[in-house]
Simulated assay, not measured.
Amino acid sequence: MKKLLFLLMLMLPFAANAQWRVGANVGASFNHPTIDRQYMTDLQYKDRWGVTAGLMGQYDFNEWLGVRAELNLTQKNYRQTRTVIQGQDYKYLNNYLLMPVMASFGFGSEKIRGFCNVGVYGGYWLNASRKGEDYNSFSQTYFTFSESMDFDKDQDQRWDCGFVGGLGLEYRFCNRWGAQIEARYYHSTTSFRKEMPHFNDKRYHSTFGIQAGVMYFF
């Protein structure tokens, strides 16, 4: 009983300054795929822009420490070309649902503050599509295409997880409302291609983001 009372006394300073906030954010993502091309040396994988948007909730223990959780729809797009086949250009669009959970460290004045978010995330590959152009060697003509992609349960890894971190600036423009802008980085530790027997074909996403949002303080 004495230990419980002691712990409650230690937590009182945190509880006195604790505060909930909720908000929404939107921005742009920039994805860099890391792919082992094996013997396909003519394959070129390139970075590509996308969008990100989501909802957030944060519990602040005090003015410098909080815990933040989000639910985001983030695109991890990339582009594939081949140097041997001129004109082959595939643009892939990949929609992921991500849930980052982060410790949030704040610093600065009451109205304008900097912050740093560090944590982990889990996610799920919702859907994918591609568009572009290719070459038909039989008719010797170029053609364009746009199509949805079906997942291969034996090859495509739809679960995603990794580390996440960000730096940003917060502006409290009135008593209950604030705005944030943040630069963020997602480092995936899960290959989006499953491991095949006797074939090393690991593929990873590294995703940068810039996002802005508004928050309501309770």
Rank of each mutant, 00 (worst) to 15 (best):
H187W: 02
F173R: 08
Y204P: 04
A179M: 15
F192Y: 15
S191R: 10
R172N: 10
H205V: 06
N200I: 12
N175E: 14
F192S: 08
H198Y: 13
T189H: 06
A179G: 15
F199C: 12
F199T: 13
H205T: 12
H198M: 04
R203D: 10
F192G: 07
S191F: 09
F199K: 13
E182Q: 12
Y186W: 13
G178Y: 04
T190F: 05
R176S: 09
H198Q: 07
W177P: 00
K194F: 03
F199P: 05
R193Q: 13
N200K: 12
W177T: 02
R184W: 00
S188E: 03
E195P: 08
R184P: 06
R184A: 07
H187S: 08
P197R: 06
E182G: 04
R184H: 03
H198S: 03
F192E: 11
D201L: 14
K202E: 09
D201M: 13
F192I: 09
T189V: 11
R172M: 05
S206R: 14
G178K: 07
N200Q: 11
S188G: 12
E195W: 11
A183R: 02
R176P: 01
D201W: 05
F192D: 10
N175K: 15
Q180W: 00
R176M: 06
A183S: 00
T189N: 09
G178R: 06
K202A: 10
K194S: 08
R193K: 12
C174F: 02
S206H: 15
Y186K: 06
R172H: 13
T189E: 09
R193C: 07
M196S: 05
N200E: 10
T190S: 14
Y185A: 06
N175L: 13
T189R: 07
R172I: 00
A183K: 00
P197Q: 03
R176I: 00
F173H: 06
K194I: 07
E195G: 15
Y186H: 13
F192M: 12
C174E: 02
R176A: 08
N175H: 13
P197S: 02
P197M: 03
S188H: 12
F192N: 11
F199L: 15
I181E: 01
S191P: 10
Y185Q: 05
F173M: 04
C174M: 04
A183G: 08
R193T: 07
R203G: 15
M196I: 06
C174T: 05
F173D: 04
H205R: 11
F199G: 03
R193I: 12
H187Q: 07
R184L: 02
A183F: 05
R193N: 09
R193L: 09
E195F: 10
Q180C: 05
F199Q: 12
P197E: 07
S191D: 10
E195R: 14
H198W: 04
R176W: 04
T189W: 09
E195Q: 15
Y186E: 05
K202C: 06
M196H: 04
S188W: 07
Y204W: 11
T189Q: 11
K202H: 05
S191A: 13
S206G: 11
R203A: 15
W177K: 02
T190N: 15
N200C: 01
N175P: 00
R172P: 02
A183I: 00
Y204M: 07
A183Q: 02
R176C: 04
